[in-house]
Amino acid sequence: MATREDRGIEFILDRPHVELNQLLKLVGLCDSGGAGKQMVASGAVSVDGEVESRKTRKIVAGNVVEAAGERIHVRGA
Rank of each mutant, 00 (worst) to 15 (best):
K25W: 07
R75S: 11
R54L: 10
V18N: 01
F11D: 07
E5M: 13
C30F: 01
G69H: 09
E50T: 10
I9T: 09
V45I: 08
R75D: 01
C30P: 00
V74P: 01
M1T: 13
E66I: 02
K25C: 00
V27A: 06
E10N: 12
K25V: 00
K55N: 11
N63C: 11
G8P: 03
S32R: 10
L13G: 11
G49E: 07
D14E: 14
S32H: 09
A41C: 00
L29G: 06
E10T: 14
E66T: 14
K37L: 00
G34R: 05
G33L: 07
V27C: 05
R15A: 15
E52R: 12
D48G: 13
G28K: 03
I9P: 04
G36H: 03
R4Q: 13
E5L: 14
K25I: 00
L20Q: 06
E5K: 15
E19T: 10
T3E: 13
G28Q: 06
R7F: 12
P16R: 12
L29F: 06
G36A: 06
A61R: 06
D14S: 12
E50V: 12
G69Y: 10
A35Q: 13
G76I: 03
A61M: 07
V18I: 15
L26A: 07
I12C: 04
L29Y: 05
R15W: 03
E52I: 02
I9L: 15
D48F: 05
